[in-house]
Structures are given as C-alpha cells and as structure tokens.
Amino acid sequence: MGTLNIIMTGIGGQGIILASDVIAEAAMVQGLDVKKTDSIGMAQRGGSVISHLRLGNIVNSPLIAEGDADILLGMEKLEAARAVIFLKEGGVALVNNYAVSPSYSKDGIKKYPDDNAVSKIIGFRTEKIHFVEGLKAARSLGNMRAMNIYLLGALSNYLPLTSDAWLISLKSRLPEKHLNVNLKAFKQGQKEANCAGIG
C-alpha cells in the first residue's frame, strides 16, 4: 500500500496523543510501518495539540507536508479549521461537534467560527466533511474522557486495520480500569459513523 496520512487535532486534555498512539500501535500489530509525531506547545491543558500519523509499507518522515493528509480528525472545531492546511484536495475531514472558546487572545475581536464558517474553511480543500457527535456520545457513556476513543471508532471506518489489531492496541494502550467504557465507545463510534454513511 501507499502511505496513509492522518492529522489529528484538538486541545490539550482531549486525549489526542493517546488516540494516535492507539492507531500507531494497531498498525504495527498488523505488520505495517508507522510513524507519528505530536506538537503540544507549552501548556499542559487547553492549548492546541496536533498529531501527525503516517502508515504504510515504508514511512520516512513522521511529519506530513501541508496539503498531503488523506484524513483530518478534528476533535475540536476551531482546531479542525486551523489544521485544514494539512488536508489534501478531496481528503476526508471528520469534525467533532465540540467547541471550546479560547479564553483570551490579543485578537479577541475575532469570533469563534460557527459551523457554517468551519464548513466553509474546510470546504476550501474538500467537500467530504462529516460532523461527528463525540460530545453527546461521551455524555451518554457517562465519561467525557471516552470522547477520543469514540472518535477513533468513527475514524476506524477509513483505516485498513483489522478489528483484532484494534483490540490488541486498545488493550495495550488504555489503563485496564477504563478499558470497558472505551471499548464500548470505540464500537459505538464505529457503528454510528457507519450508519451515518461515514467511511
């Protein structure tokens, strides 16, 4: 296979790095080459986070060139819009229907973009934009921390990874006491996205 390039983005505390670790581990389990790298800036919580992940037969750079990502998973809407520069023409954008306003910025006059604005910005690159209800799902699962794995489930519909590989990876990367709710979140995300024609 060629290289599949995935950008995942959101804000610190959402579990983006863990989610991309799970994909990378699953790819490795399946015998693929994989590289990933995260940019986390200086803040522990609340700052922009972006993770680059590439899988294929041979992967060189862990960083994805601008305009070269096949898939963008935005766990937060503003960050999804910001990262669209990495998406290739006609790539897939999965956007979590979840907004966190920046607390303060010097350019505070700039408004948080509404859904139409986000769609318009991503629309410069692709028409394949899917909003995913990660927040609603996490609330119904009773665990906000499972939002990332729910979104991973939705994303899994696009990835050439077997359910065995996913299971091994989820088991190895998640703490045991949170495994069950996360497995449930993964399956629910996969199924609900599938029903919505995502994948």
Partner: peptide, 23 residues
C-alpha cells in the same frame, strides 16, 4: 517529489489559542 504547491489556502483569520496556565 511534491510537484505543485501544497500549502496554498484561502487566507482565513481564526482566533488564536495562545498557551495559558491550566485552570
């Protein structure tokens, strides 16, 4: 390898998310 300019995008102004101390 990359034949055409990959980074071009319509200029869009988005609010920044500067790093800040945790809540």
């Amino acid at each position: 390898r990359y034949e055409k300019e990959q980074g071009e995008l319509h200029e869009v102004e988005l609010p920044a998310r500067p790093p800040s101390m945790c809540p």
